[in-house]
Design a protein around this nucleic acid. Structure first.
Lengths: 210, 210
DNA sequence: ATAAAAACTGACATTTTTGTCAACTTTATA
DNA sequence: TATAAAGTTGACAAAAATGTCAGTTTTTAT
């Protein structure tokens, strides 16, 4: 009678299977991109028959678009509590820390999106583009206000922001290059901490001795 | 009698066609990666029949490996004249300028290699890996010596170097994100100059006002 | 001019991938 | 417990991609 005959029954079969499929898909896409991933591979990796995957998603396209949306939401969740209302030094430190945490904990999502950007972001909807633009602009405004208040030098907020994005995302997207550079087989939390210190220190104070 | 019946006859048909094929291939690979690119597409883009392409390259693999080698050589050529024996400020300025020039002028090669790194660099030979490592290490040594000489702060040369690489490569790999951020349809030389100024200024002197 | 080497190509067999469907099983609901 | 709805699947046809080859044309060297 009860809708739960056993404890572990997730509310919906649909939801459980969609997650299986999306998880398998994002991993494959993160390695080989949209065109490089076969529908059949996704089915295999999901441990579901192909026809069953078609039951949930009508095309590879549909899976991919769902993932794009999920990743963008993931960012919003990860960074919504970042408080830029601090003094520049603290704010930037926190921001870079958060970005590196994201890179460390979500490398698959990062690489997935890197593929999308490499192909030119063709799959992004107008709305999603706008959203990214809005978030970016908000950050730029913070920088601008710091400049106006004489708290930081007069530099291009856009390029500065890109530098932060680039420096942190790199650790997720090109982990193997970092490993090669650090001559380590696997990056540890400590490595990310060192990255953070180096980036923050260079960007805040510069590398030159005064 | 003369080996040139007409002026424009390139020395070798083989060489000309290989270039046609490699040019078409690197563009496709730069957009869709190795797995996402079909042999047939390369043939189409080369304007040669598929069987003709097979005459020159026995597999997609072979084309790809040739390109990897070419790109690595391209770097060596592009950066061999970079002189790091200057004072830190000048050296870093020159280096970042050269990297951004490369990003601006060779976006296809950059993206091609970005794909390769995203998939973990599986196609790189031991020798190529070692070469990259060696070049990187040389740069690190320069930084270390500056630190020892008290010319720059005591920061991790590895992470610092990664930051430079990341910040400059980003403009090639994710051009569309940059365009979105700058709200421009196409980046100009001027934009790259601004990037250079911002990166150099931040990294050398820091963004904080003293 | 001619023979050998290099370059070219249409056509074909094979393999891989795609997408659909009808039949079947499980789960939810009344 | 009956019935509808949701979920599952093997099997198949169609389409796309791969790789080869025999036969041809063009280029090179003598």
């Amino acid at each position: 009678m009860n809708k739960n005959t056993n404890k572990k029954s997730e509310k919906k079969i649909r939801s459980r299977n969609e997650i299986k499929i999306l998880d398998a898909a994002v991993l494959l896409f993160s390695k080989k991109g949209f065109d490089g991933t076969r529908f059949m591979e996704i089915a295999k990796a999901s441990e579901l028959p192909k026809a069953n995957v078609y039951y949930y998603f009508s095309s590879k396209n549909e899976i991919y678009e769902r993932l794009i949306e999920n990743v963008i939401q993931g960012w919003d969740n990860a960074f919504e509590h970042i408080n830029l209302d601090l003094e520049p030094a603290d704010a930037i430190d926190t921001y870079i820390g958060a970005k590196l945490d994201y890179a460390r904990l979500n490398p698959i999502e990062s690489r997935f999106f890197a593929h999308e950007m490499l192909r030119g972001g063709e799959f992004l909807t107008r709305k999603q583009r706008q959203h990214i633009r809005d978030v970016t602009r908000k950050h730029e405004h913070v920088l601008e206000s710091w400049i106006l208040q004489g708290k930081i030098r007069d530099i291009s907020p856009q390029h500065f922001f890109i530098m932060l994005w680039a420096s942190t995302e790199f650790y997720a997207n090109f982990t193997n290059v970092v490993e090669l550079t650090l001559e380590k087989r696997k990056l540890t939390k400590k490595d990310y901490d060192n990255a953070r210190k180096t980036i923050v220190n260079s960007i805040l104070n510069g590398c030159l001795k005064k």
